[in-house]
């Protein structure tokens, strides 16, 4: 959620005096140097290092130095025909598939629910101020905390949700939605939806508030029903805000690590791409192989970002 939202910068004031601008490039560069140095140290260098390591075999605990093996971490078949590259390993594809399901499920539900919340808060019903304040609560709760809260509610024997599920006949005694591999991912999506819908609602609410109210008055005069007004007026005008929110949430969901990791650890039915990468890097000390997974995740995210920047025609200046 730290991702800056695009499109706010506008052209600098044309009134800026020419005399003031002369010879200022050097000053500007000096002002930028500290920030650029830090970014190079924490983003640029580590990224290059990760890419380099992905072409090497390097167990950080036993190997003295990385050994260059080219594309071996990505694709390598032994003489016996066993595929050892990331792209040949079912566990990687399992994590990709889990992440895709998690992303599609959570982003769709968050959008629909967030839109409903936003419409409620934007309507003239009483208590909308209360609603707006209340939906900030899940957003304010740290992800780790919300993961543990839901973990407790999902607990097999003492969890309130398991109790409801067992009473309603969805679960057998002593079972929970988390312990069942078929429902575990859906249970995690529910946690993410609870936590992130408020963020979606706030973004969409800001979009709704830019729609001038006289448009609705005109529609009323023309006799359009509220339903027609929503589909013909609200939704088309909300599309830009909706797209931005959707894409930012998608990027967040594709990177997800903390909540599924805290609730389910490295369990195969819920392992995400990021969890798989960390498992190979840190738990198995495979810095070469793990870096290859990291690079793949990076490429996926960058492709998405490129599509987004071009399709929305983000302008900077």
């Amino acid at each position: 959620m730290t991702t800056p939202l695009p499109s706010q910068p506008r052209a600098a004031s044309p009134r800026a005096g020419r005399g003031l601008q002369a010879g200022r490039t050097r000053v500007a560069l000096l002002l930028l140097v500290p920030m650029l140095l830090v970014l190079a140290a924490v983003a640029g260098y580590p990224l290059l290092r990760t890419i380099y390591l992905s072409f090497t075999e390097y167990n950080i605990l036993t190997d003295p130095a990385p050994k260059w093996i080219g594309l071996g971490n990505y694709w390598f078949t032994t003489e016996d025909g066993v595929g050892l590259g990331v792209l040949q390993i079912p566990e990687w594809w399992q994590s990709v598939w889990n992440t895709v399901k998690f992303t599609v499920g959570s982003v769709l539900l968050e959008t629909v629910l967030g839109l409903a919340f936003a419409l409620m808060i934007n309507s003239k019903i009483r208590g909308r101020g209360l609603l707006r304040t209340a939906i900030l609560v899940p957003w304010a709760i740290p992800t780790v905390v919300s993961a543990q809260m839901w973990n407790w509610m999902y607990n097999d024997s003492f969890g309130i949700i398991s109790d409801w599920g067992q009473r309603l006949g969805f679960l057998e005694a002593g079972q929970s939605f988390l312990s069942n591999p078929d429902t575990a991912l859906a249970a995690l999506i529910a946690v993410d939806v609870w936590k992130t819908t408020p963020f979606m609602a706030l973004l969409l609410l800001a979009g709704l508030q830019t729609i001038p109210s006289d448009m609705y008055e005109a529609a009323d005069v023309d006799g359009a029903s509220k339903w027609t007004q929503f589909w013909r007026l609200t939704l088309p005008l909300l599309t830009p805000a909706l797209l931005v929110a959707l894409i930012f949430r998608t990027l967040d969901a594709l990177r997800v690590f903390d909540m599924p990791y805290i609730v389910k650890g490295n369990a195969p039915e819920t392992i995400t791409m990021s969890i798989y990468a960390r498992q190979e890097l840190i738990l198995n000390s495979q810095f070469g192989f793990g870096s290859a997974i990291s690079v793949l995740i990076f490429l996926i995210i960058m492709v998405f970002t490129a599509i987004y920047v071009t399709s929305l025609r983000v302008k900077f200046d």
Binding site: T2, A43, L47, T50, I60, F257, I282, G290, S294, I301
Partner: peptide, 15 residues
């Protein structure tokens, strides 16, 4: 700003 944290994890770790 859209860098996945996992993409720099191994590089940062060694650093």
């Amino acid at each position: 700003s859209v860098f996945p944290q996992i993409a720099v994890l191994s590089g940062l770790y060694t650093m």
